[in-house]
Nucleic acid binder design. Structure first.
Lengths: 227, 227
DNA sequence: CAATGTGAAACCATTCACAGCA
DNA sequence: TGCTGTGAATGGTTTCACATTG
């Protein structure tokens, strides 16, 4: 198995989506043709993407849904690195990180920064995907009212406690749902506190920071692109 | 001014984000260097993107924030076409669609399909961006309880009325926030009813349909990519 | 002189074509 | 025969280099 770091971004994004697709796929065997019909990606793109991952259990009569799904989950449950791996041939070291047992769910600690209606809506979303469970450990908001009134299965804190809680709870990922005007400032604080990945749901373009991954999923921006 | 249809997707996405950036930018002049610092895009990429749009008011001492912003808004407020325009030199026809008055806000009718907590959270989001106002005309859910209990400034309907209301209210765009298992079925119904663009917030990969634009902004998928 | 405008060059992603396998 | 695996060819995007401008 190759490492996610060596797979270019467009392919990585499709592979992530392929996990979701396989999760709800009902048949035992799946072919690149079938995936193509369901997603609109070309057959050759799908085969090439899988080739990039090093997967080769599909010879000549399609892929086993279960085997491919578990392979991709394992690939994504490895912690990705920002830079492409230099030690390409050092397979032993890479393999050591691969969970032997697929069923072992991989937990990642997550927080929600901003508890307006959108942020609050995430409090009961199921953020399990593949064999990874993003466990929400905390929610933050500058508005003390919200922190006290909202109910959730994990604690909510005022924003001034953010840095301390992130360190204490070893939180590495954040979903940013504050107001657009506060987004950059909040992102800076999250990064300073040690957050390594941010899902940015605000309508603000964040300034990149070395070693921190950012995914933008702004509704306003998506609307501009479907016009 | 060129048409959005002739601009490749990666550039289009950056230009859409640039509108948001300029909205909160405080100084009068802005350079490609400044935009590069704020976004991480290279200077040459920014200049090249603007070249693709045909914008050329920036000679030698940066861009006027206001002028560039209004130019981009006008560009995006034109209805995009799915296929690249064939009649490239027919500028007159294109220009006729350009709003003479920038202040004229362009309304687009929108609906929310699925009123679980995430969908309901969008009921009071401000979906104005650039000079475009995405006006929510309706919300739909199969659960009658939700339809009756939730309060909003626009009407909520049971899902079986969806097709009729979309036609009656001339709704062309939809935000999809149903459960993952219902996403494809709901998307098919939206498309059959005449929807031309879908912002898909579910964790389902939708099968493409000719003439319908889809933007995927799944939180689960974004989380996989920030690992 | 510090900025843009612009086409050509370099780089990267996708598609193609076909060998190899059940 | 119908599928995958694979590197080479193609096509699209980004970067570069420099002429041009206020």
């Amino acid at each position: 198995m190759k490492s996610l770091c060596d797979i270019p971004q467009p392919a990585k994004k499709r592979l992530a989506e392929l996990i979701s697709l396989l999760e709800t796929y009902s048949e035992e065997k799946v072919t690149s043709k079938k995936i193509s019909e369901l997603t609109g990606w070309t057959e050759s793109k799908i085969r090439h993407d899988l080739w990039l991952t090093g997967y080769d259990k599909g010879i000549s009569n399609g892929y086993s849904r279960k085997d491919l799904y578990e392979f991709l989950c394992r690939l994504f449950s490895l912690k990705d690195c920002t830079e492409p791996s230099e030690k390409v041939s050092d397979d032993a070291a890479t393999l050591k990180q691969v969970p032997e047992n697929f069923d072992a769910v991989h937990h990642r600690n997550l927080c929600i920064a901003g508890l307006s209606r959108l942020g609050a809506a995430l409090l009961d979303e199921n953020l399990t995907t593949g064999n990874m469970k993003f466990q929400i450990k905390a929610g933050f908001d500058t508005n003390l009212n919200r922190v006290e009134i909202l109910r959730s299965t994990f604690p909510l804190y005022p924003a001034y406690e953010m840095e301390a809680i992130i360190r204490k709870e070893k939180i590495q990922y954040a979903i940013l749902t504050v107001a657009a005007k506060d987004a950059q400032n909040m992102a800076d604080r999250l990064i300073k506190a040690g957050i390594k990945g941010i899902v940015n749901m605000t309508n603000t373009v964040l300034t990149p920071f070395p070693g921190v991954k950012i995914e933008n999923i702004s509704i306003q921006n998506a609307l501009k692109l479907v016009i």
